[in-house]
Design a protein around this nucleic acid. Structure first.
Lengths: 202, 202
DNA sequence: TTCTTTTTGTACTGACTCGCATATTTATAG
DNA sequence: CTATAAATATGCGAGTCAGTACAAAAAGAA
């Protein structure tokens, strides 16, 4: 099949750049407190264009959550790949996450914590789709940590033990994201993360 | 001074019961997604009465957060007082918190996680009062854990070390509350909490 | 040019939002 | 009974909300 040239009036916006702007707004204000007018103003698109390109407000938000998880995963994976050994990798990953949470990366410009952990739970109790999205994010982090632990398996632990440790690490990370959202400084969070990883990775 | 009998038309509602109903709604829906009409319907008070008794929506919410923290503190304190030793106390406290998060107490009727951790962060980035309230909740938990650890100080650790451990425990607890909000079952969360406490408490 | 396709801009809808102004009810104080 | 104090009930008002109907604009196809 050949790549047909597109018919119709061309878009005047870049989809990726627009999604990034939308992500920033949801990241800062959460789902319920964000209005489509706000998004319209920030992106330069009017509401019908937004609706045509990304669907309803809920569609947009859920898409953004997935996008955030993708971006975060590559960010953390890259950070882990710079060092050798399970513990150093985990510490590097924690530090990279804290940088993300405290606005010290190009991805985030302000200390807003984790988009998913900070904004999804507020909606999760009332709406099963949001709850499922939250659970998906959690499962994804668990698996990510678990894979890393098994790949660097120095003590020949079982898969079940690895999953338990992975979930311990995820618990820590989510707690750290809340503290970042509360405004605690990056330096303090990194100290906390490092000492916690030392205790958890026996 | 004598207790003067109150002038004017008497209230037809019980303040504590009303605050409990308001708490349930904010707990489930968060701040932004809750409307005063919802609260009015659930409490039987119309909006002017609510405003007269508890102030604005924001006033009400911040008051509820403080109330939640009070109730939770006594709930956890009671749970800790049933056993002896630092580790058993901490495990009992974690289990009691999980019961609270998963709706297994009289205080909570549904698995909504922690009111503060689940709903405050969504608002915290944009509003400094909410952010301050979140930080206050975190500080309060840190101090609570720290006091307990120092009171049961078996290994003569320093105050600084105790505070670090306390914050590790708080990180875990907040992570657990997120997972409860996502719908994970109480049993799994308790296993996770127990094994994590074992690793953190030397 | 003319037809089709897609995006854009304007404007609208019907519902919901919070806070308050006003009037009424119900109690105590004198 | 009259005055005062407090709570309640009705309802307004100015604004915001998400989504969409409709027409104009901008491209390719024929």
């Amino acid at each position: 099949m050949m790549t047909e040239t597109k018919r119709g009036r061309p878009r005047k916006f870049d989809e990726d750049q627009t999604l990034d702007k939308i992500m920033q707004i949801f990241w800062e204000h959460g789902y319920s407190a964000t209005s489509l007018d706000q998004i319209s103003a920030a992106t330069g698109l009017n509401r019908p264009s937004l609706y045509g390109a990304f669907g309803s407000k809920k569609d947009m938000y859920l898409k953004i959550v997935g996008r955030f998880a993708d971006l975060m995963q590559t960010h953390l994976r890259n950070a882990g790949s710079t060092v050798i050994g399970a513990k150093p990798k985990l510490k590097a990953i924690m530090n990279a996450a804290i940088d993300l949470y405290t606005g010290k990366t190009e991805m985030a410009g302000a200390p807003f914590g984790c988009l998913a952990i900070s904004t999804l739970p507020a909606e999760a109790a009332q709406d099963s789709e949001f709850r499922a999205a939250l659970e998906a994010v959690l499962a994804r982090m668990d698996k990510g940590f678990c894979r890393l632990i098994l790949a660097e398996n120095e003590n020949r632990i079982t898969e079940i033990e690895a999953m338990e440790t992975a979930q311990h690490l995820a618990l820590l990370l989510h707690g750290l994201s809340i503290r970042a959202r509360a405004g605690e400084p990056s330096k303090k969070l990194k100290q906390l993360a490092t000492s916690a990883v030392d205790k958890i990775m026996n």
